[in-house]
Design a protein around this nucleic acid. Structure first.
Lengths: 338, 338
DNA sequence: GTGAAAGCGCTAACAG
DNA sequence: CTGTTAGCGCTTTCAC
């Protein structure tokens, strides 16, 4: 009943017809007689025939597999993007191959090499924090391998891109803090070489300007990791007067800031308000709940996959730039009413 | 410089020798003269030749790709397992294809079908909460496709397995709570059809027995999701006397329990101690920090991948059962000293 | 030491 | 309407 792997030949032999006829019957080719089709399809069903995708790949020069490179799978944002890519790809009969760069330039280059060697039909990537040299992307372009950047894009490499509306998200978060009456809003920002970091800073500044608040250099501090926050936040809180709000580049840093500030005896949100960025599972579980900017990772994943599959179909279409809307989610860490 | 995709034929043509000679030279076959080898290898390097894995697969009947099926990528535990699998697989020149079941039986069956159709050399799976029928696994066995279960195993299907020492982890957690002087320890448990749920219950009971504490039916409550906890925990806290400790089947439920209990006016850990299971990123960011049992997901992933690759090499070896040690991580939610 | 030929599973141009 | 043939890239047996 469960033959190891049924091939077209097997069916042809059994029915005493040629493999090509079987192949055509299976694809409902108009030339084939209805009876033959029925015969073939019945046997194919009965034997549970599945076309061998490897043979198809070799023939067609396309693997129906796309590759993803992310810094770390274990981050909520990235795993939700992957989830979206996965779903969209599978719906379109594509498979997905995943590599991690671990925020390391070398590993990123290797990952791309691996995917290229595996003959993926295209690549989706969010670049690592340490990536400065964009040579590996140019190589992809010169080899004509479709490439889509998501979230952490390269501004130097022309290609399809999906980003969230980082500037707008940061603007909304900052504006929210201002409207809550905060005067000394610190922005804990990301690595300066990433476009998303710059955009979030821009949004932060735009909001301050709009409300005639002064923008102070020392209120923009690079700090995007739990360990960094450990010493940076306490040192910031020693200022007099201390900051009365933090807008953080991600939920982890925000949650950690929240804890540190509480440990120093400040009340949240009364003395200090905090807003993060991501809206991961974490943000509902801090105390108080963490206000944050939802990045809609899953949607971004679907959109990125869509762009990639479209480019695979048509390599000459103009480059697309998609922006996923962000959404401010207000919880107890920034609003006294919650 | 960057030819699209160099083949053996290209090299043969350029050097005016036959493809077979090139193939042999590339694999350092003893028959080939050193000069020819040098010539071939130099050109291969220069042209950046990479064997086409698809052709190799078709020829060799092996894809050097393994498949993973997990309930949800976005859970810290699963993404860390995936990370471990990835690393081990890549070190051994295997690629990894990932599918999600979304805790749904149908999608699990589909995922396996997808992977089989893609001709993966083997499959790693952690079964969904809703999976009761094991037919799809038996099919894999009858098709002779290597299969390794990790974490959520099927006790009904014989195969290689990697689990964490759930019973021991639960035992340590419970014992720790007992030693902290807790008398009314509630266990919020997982879906009863999963082996891990049973094992954790067993460990919980063993610790209670060992210390002559009574085991009460009503202290074992099925509750493994944030939303469930929302109403279950408050109702439990209405008992008189209320529970003075919770051992939860995962970190999410534990963190949520922690918040709910605090919201009801109880102090943690003074009035109520809480221990979770996973040791995800979340556990350092609750207030107080969440005591939990580390599952070493990354190590589990590596080990599972190792078992799979070994079985792919030798399909007749006896089935292996690997147990990853768990580790109790004590933080503020269960110990007054922290 | 090297080459020719066949075949992995499938498709498509070309014949009939 | 159906069969034959060649070829995707690579390996491997069999010849020479």
């Amino acid at each position: 009943m469960n033959k190891e792997n049924v091939t077209i030949k097997d069916i042809a032999r059994e029915l005493e017809i040629s493999p090509s006829t079987v192949s055509r019957a299976l694809k409902d080719h108009p030339d084939i007689s209805p009876e033959t089709k029925k015969l073939v399809n019945n046997l194919a069903d009965k034997w549970n025939y599945r076309p061998n995708p490897i043979a198809l790949s070799l023939k067609g020069g396309t693997s129906r597999t796309i590759g993803i490179v992310v810094p770390e799978i274990v981050h909520y944002f990235f795993s939700s993007v992957i989830s979206g890519i996965e779903d969209y790809a599978n719906e379109n009969d594509y498979n997905v191959m995943i590599c991690q760069s671990n925020e390391d330039y070398e590993k990123e280059v290797n990952s791309i090499q691996t995917l290229v060697n595996s003959r993926v039909d295209g690549i989706l990537i969010s670049i690592s924090k340490l990536t400065r040299n964009m040579e590996h992307f140019h190589q992809l372009k010169s080899r004509n391998i479709p490439l889509v950047f998501f979230d952490r894009i390269s501004s130097e490499v022309e290609s399809d891109r999906v980003v969230v509306d980082d500037a707008e998200g940061a603007y909304m978060a900052t504006k929210h803090l201002i409207l809550e009456g905060r005067k000394r809003i610190v922005h804990l920002s990301g690595p300066p070489n990433l476009v998303i970091s710059k955009d979030r800073i821009d949004g932060y500044i735009r909001a301050l300007n709009e409300f005639q608040c002064s923008v102070a250099e020392e209120n923009i501090v690079k700090c995007d990791q739990i360990q960094e926050a450990e010493w940076i936040v306490p040192s910031l809180m020693k200022r007099s007067p201390p900051p009365d709000a933090f807008f953080c580049v991600n939920d982890f840093t925000a949650a950690q800031t929240l804890n540190l500030v509480k440990r120093l005896g400040f009340r949240v949100p009364e003395d200090v308000a905090i807003v993060g960025f991501t809206n991961g599972q974490l943000s509902m579980l801090t105390d108080p709940g963490l206000s944050t900017v939802d990045q809609h990772g899953y949607d971004m994943g679907r959109e990125a996959a869509r762009l990639l599959l479209e480019r695979i179909k048509d390599r000459n279409r103009p480059y697309q730039n998609r922006v996923i809307k962000t959404e401010l989610v207000v919880r107890g860490s920034s609003s006294k009413e919650l």
